[in-house]
């Protein structure tokens, strides 16, 4: 087989990538209170412990609120930016897009710290809302990237045809463009949701006393007693994010099929 050595290396690399995640369920279902080998008996007690934990429930509700809001906001902002970058040419376009995409190359702690200083100076109380502000900022570049791909694969003459046939500009967008980029919008929503749900350092700075899932996990990692429960939580989270990613991948492929591209994994 061609590239046999490379293939073996790639498979080893995959093992390296998956090793920590494969360990999660092993310890989540293990009755031992210390996370180490040899294993004890099979148990689901850590999962029932999760269910009864009220702080965790509060953190989950907070995280879901933040992730849904940030995903919607980032996707809406991303649509504007992607449309502006693919459909129009105007002075300062590069600089404007550069600033919008800047969080991609900025350490997240800098984003968190600078927002914290300003919010405190203006007198805004730290809450779930302030985390939404920060997460929208870091999710928008990803939305822009996904949606730019979706918008740029559109045939502009479709929209022009609709306008020539008497539709207003807004109707042409709503009736022709929007359905075609819908898969891109869905995958942008899912991607932003996943990023926000997992984001730690900005939430750590901006959440005040409100727990989010990552800040709750971080606070629990200090207590050896809480670790098995965290392993169970991790297992649930991994299962949920694989489900979300599979959904996002499904929408991406459908989008690619709808606009008549060949499927090359999102990289033309």
């Amino acid at each position: 087989m061609r590239g046999g050595g490379l293939r073996a290396y790639a498979l080893l690399y995959l093992l390296f990538l998956y090793a920590p995640i494969l360990l999660l369920p092993v310890f989540a279902f293990n009755s031992g209170t210390i996370v180490a080998f040899p294993l004890n008996e099979f148990t689901t007690q850590w999962f029932s412990q999760l269910w009864g934990n009220t702080t965790l429930r509060r953190a989950l509700v907070n995280s879901l609120t933040i992730a849904v809001s940030a995903a919607v906001l980032a996707t809406v902002l991303g649509m504007f930016a992607a449309r502006a970058s693919t459909r129009y040419r105007f002075p300062g376009q590069g600089a404007a897009l550069g600033l919008i995409m800047l969080p991609l190359v900025l350490p997240e702690i800098i984003v968190g710290v600078s927002l914290l200083v300003v919010l405190l100076a203006v007198g805004v109380e730290l809450s779930v809302l302030t985390v939404i502000i920060g997460h929208t900022l870091i999710c928008t570049p990803y939305s822009v990237a996904i949606l730019t791909t979706a918008f740029s694969s559109l045939d502009q003459s479709l929209e022009e045809a609709a306008q020539d046939l008497g539709e207003s500009r807004w109707n042409a967008f709503r009736l022709v463009i929007l359905p075609l980029v819908m898969p891109g919008i869905m995958s942008s929503l899912l991607m932003s949701f996943t990023i926000s749900l997992d984001e730690f350092i900005i939430a750590f700075f901006l959440a005040g006393n409100e727990p989010t899932l990552p800040t709750y996990i971080f606070s629990q990692l200090r207590f050896p007693k809480a670790i098995p429960m965290i392993m169970a939580l991790g297992t649930v989270l991994v299962a949920a994010s694989i489900l979300l990613l599979a959904l996002a991948e499904y929408f991406r492929r459908r989008g690619a099929a709808r606009t008549g591209q060949t499927n090359s994994g999102g990289f033309p």
Partner: peptide, 22 residues
Amino acid sequence: SGQGLRMIAPPLLYAVLMLAIP
């Protein structure tokens, strides 16, 4: 270019307020 500027205004304004100013 006017249409383009109006299109980019919302995300740009957000980035200026929440990123450039901080």
